Amino acid sequence: KEFRPGDKVVLPPYGVGVVAGIAQRSVSGVSRAYYQVDFPGSRSKAYVPVEAPHSVGLRKAL
């Protein structure tokens, strides 16, 4: 896996977040693995496909 729990990442347009782990989510009846990204200071979460994280701009924070 490219990202691990605890990694600081950037996800446009949300900003800097932390990978909380990998979650299985069902979309249109198909279960897939997603990185769960939490954003400190907020209750917001984002789910990014493990198979294509760069397709939505997910990258490691510098």
Rank of each mutant, 00 (worst) to 15 (best):
K1C: 15
K1S: 13
F3D: 01
F3L: 06
F3H: 09
F3N: 01
R4W: 08
R4I: 13
P5K: 13
P5F: 08
P5D: 04
P5Q: 09
G6K: 02
D7H: 03
D7C: 09
K8P: 05
K8C: 14
K8A: 08
V9P: 04
V9Q: 00
V10F: 14
L11D: 01
L11H: 03
P12V: 06
P12T: 04
P12K: 06
P13F: 10
P13E: 05
Y14T: 01
Y14Q: 03
Y14C: 09
G15W: 05
G15N: 02
V16D: 06
G17C: 04
V18P: 00
V18C: 09
V18A: 02
V19Q: 00
A20R: 12
A20S: 11
G21L: 08
G21F: 06
G21S: 08
I22R: 02
I22K: 03
A23D: 05
A23N: 05
Q24Y: 15
R25A: 06
R25N: 05
R25Y: 12
R25M: 13
S26C: 14
V27R: 05
V27C: 12
V27I: 12
S28A: 13
S28C: 15
S28L: 13
S28K: 13
G29M: 02
G29I: 02
G29P: 00
G29C: 04
V30D: 04
V30P: 15
S31K: 11
S31A: 09
S31M: 14
S31E: 09
S31L: 14
R32M: 10
A33V: 10
A33F: 14
Y34F: 10
Y34C: 06
Y34T: 01
Y35N: 02
Y35A: 00
Y35T: 00
Q36E: 14
Q36F: 06
Q36D: 03
Q36W: 06
Q36T: 08
Q36Y: 07
V37Y: 00
D38I: 15
D38T: 13
F39E: 01
F39P: 00
F39N: 00
F39I: 03
F39G: 00
P40T: 07
G41I: 07
G41Q: 11
G41K: 10
G41D: 11
G41H: 13
G41E: 11
S42V: 08
S42C: 11
S42K: 12
R43A: 12
R43K: 13
R43E: 12
S44W: 15
S44Q: 15
S44P: 09
K45R: 14
A46D: 02
A46Q: 11
A46I: 13
A46N: 03
Y47C: 04
Y47K: 00
Y47T: 01
Y47V: 02
V48R: 00
V50W: 06
E51L: 07
E51T: 08
A52N: 14
A52E: 09
A52G: 08
P53S: 13
H54D: 12
V56A: 14
V56C: 13
G57A: 05
G57V: 05
G57K: 04
L58V: 03
L58D: 03
L58G: 02
R59L: 09
K60P: 14
K60T: 08
A61G: 04
A61L: 15
A61P: 06
A61H: 12
A61T: 07
L62Q: 12
L62F: 12
L62T: 13
